[in-house]
Amino acid sequence: MNKIKKLLSLPESFCLLITIVLFIVIQLRSGQFFTSNNITDLLASYTVPGIMAMGSLIVFISGGLDISFPALCSLGGFITLTVFKDFTGSVIIPFLFCSLVCGLLGMFNGVIIAKFRFAPLIVTLATEALFWGILHGILRAREISVLPACFEKLQDSVIWVATNPETGISSQLPGVFLIFVGVVILSSLLLRKTVYGRKLFAVGGNPSAAENVGINVFWIRVSAYIISGITAGIACLCRSMIIGNYHPNALYGYEYNVISMVVLGGCSLSGGRGSVIGTIFGVILIQTMNLSLTLMNVPTYWQKFCTGVIMIIGISYSAYRTMKSSQTLSGVMNKTDDKVKEVK
């Protein structure tokens, strides 16, 4: 009993609970939620936000914040797709190149934030404007409707095809989904099983203590932004493969979507707290809701409003829990602690 209580008190379980309720509501209203078609489509749709959310999660845990990644990966993706236009070799090489470019751009973010101790929100806002400016202003990015030939094999690979026996409509789970699974496994191993992961948590939880223990806080912070850049770059390539083309503005405004997923999954904005499994629940919750409104006969213009309501409920609930667990006075202190961490 105690164990169940403890399990229920985790922020992740609240997210899971809302998700399950949402699934049931959708199933009751439409009767088409638990069909193989729908599940396959939903799984495919988790790929891009899921990969991005992993990078965001790592930055959040290190006590930072990155909102420049949609701009960053659009830029990296465009450069990659232009460089490898006529490339016919292995698909891994463009991926490595994209990771390198996006990693360098992420390092730019990280170095500015970690060296000057500026507020991450402001710096990434500025670099976001910078990246969009470079992408549209200098490179004059246009839509790329034909992807390089080297992507073809991965693009056409299918894990399984689900066909609706009544309508005959089939939906397929693209092979790119495996990349998502890989990224998830890698990041959970990184966070839970490596020294580097423990260092990330330490830096996010209390930077000055981490410094005293002998952790190189500067490089841990920079590396978190590098990882965020790399995952975003991979996500951008995956997106172009799923959709079949690249559009420079396709990911505009996506950062808040991803941040809301990560935060709903129980990750703390002030650093040092967060889990891969919670983030996945967050991705599932927001993405399912966005895609299932049409199933429930709700006009799509309700989508943003519903996201907002779920976000406010979810965040308020976890804030209320922290509030309740500490007394009034220490509650104020807690808030201050959080603030001090944010400043640093």
Binding site: S260, V263, F305, G308, M311, I315, A319
Partner: peptide, 14 residues
């Protein structure tokens, strides 16, 4: 509720 301002205003913006 003590929600970090950035998160709170981001969700109310939604």
């Amino acid at each position: 509720l003590g929600i970090p301002p950035m998160l709170a205003t981001m969700s109310t913006n939604y």
